[in-house]
Design a protein around this nucleic acid. Structure first.
Lengths: 180, 180
DNA sequence: GTAGTTGGCTATGAAAGTCATACCCTCGTA
DNA sequence: TACGAGGGTATGACTTTCATAGCCAACTAC
């Protein structure tokens, strides 16, 4: 109970060792990203992260055990669950924003397009990657920001969802639409 | 060759997928933490992160290939190297700071002591976990902060270094100083 | 001048994690 | 009655990581 991973990070004062014990892997981070973007369903998480269903199930289980994610039934009769971040999970936003800024600044193919544009809730101006508002001349706290995906990124996500649906369909009906 | 990991993250606009492709694992993050704290030597990195020598060697190799770390000989005749962050690596500071803030806020055993205290370079006041200066009433950029480890954390690190040295000694000289 | 020591790794098998693929169960509905 | 959607689990191959051991090239102490 409580933390459920192997790392015995309780014998250190270092907060980073503690953090990475809970979200120190690629899949957890991508899942948190999706949840922060508002996805709540297993399928959508799977489609957008690219994780296998096992990985996703295992990580969600761990994130739930660690108190970052809450699972709730959104339908009783066909029993279906949705996944949402708890406050503890939501407060990972600054980590995600920092990874975003770094990724946009140092990992993109050069002059590439942003995936998400961030705006200052107070004045509506678009923020730079450091979270600075050019209008107000201040650093903006993450709670005062609002993000909006660019058209290109929305397209990419829609494509991913469609491909995933396709893929699923193919595996359930082995023999069919391979017609020229 | 630039990026050397398996993840084919080049087909997405998402900067977080790119970032986690390079630093999306526990060991890389802990290594970057140590390098940011000023450690440069293999042994020290190993002692403070707790990684095995293979893991450390492999990760340093990958971090170097990805341009986050530069390896330089600090001695020619006994050929010895030191590891330092490149600008690309140094700019992961905000990620580390965000993980720190989250870890201190949500993962510590309750009312625990900080590992590092952060100060505003401009006025010397101690910052809160969100990077806000109580004196200046502003958010402070990471470039304007200075960290200082607390006594307890320094002690912990010294202990870890000593234990690691011990451990090494024992494995090279199997029979000796087991004296009370 | 040789026996240990120090720093920085490699080698080896066992253990754990991850993957692709397949399958399952419960409903709703056509 | 039979899809098909949603949310998973089961299986066996493949890959990564681990603990432990060893290696090599300077030095340094005797």
């Amino acid at each position: 109970m409580g933390t459920s991973n192997g790392g015995d990070d309780d014998d250190t004062l270092c907060p980073i060792a503690h953090s990475t014990g809970l979200v120190g892997d690629r899949w957890s981070i991508l899942i948190v990203r999706e949840l922060l973007m508002g996805q709540t369903r297993f399928q959508d998480l799977q489609a957008q992260t690219g994780a296998t269903s096992q990985m996703l199930a295992a990580r969600l289980k761990r994130l739930e055990a660690d108190g970052l994610v809450a699972r709730r039934a959104y339908s009783q009769r066909p029993l279906r669950h949705e996944y949402r971040l708890t406050p503890k999970g939501v407060h990972l936003m600054p980590v995600i924003l920092a990874l975003r800024a770094w990724g946009e600044s140092w990992c993109k193919p050069a002059g590439g397009e942003l995936a998400i544009r961030m705006f200052h809730r107070a004045c509506g101006a678009e923020l730079d990657l450091n979270g600075r508002c050019p209008a107000c001349k201040t650093l903006v706290a993450w709670t005062d920001m609002q993000g909006r995906p660019t058209a290109a990124y929305q397209t990419e996500r829609a494509r991913r969802a469609a491909e995933f649906a396709d893929h699923r369909q193919k595996s359930t009906s082995p023999q069919s639409e391979s017609r020229s």
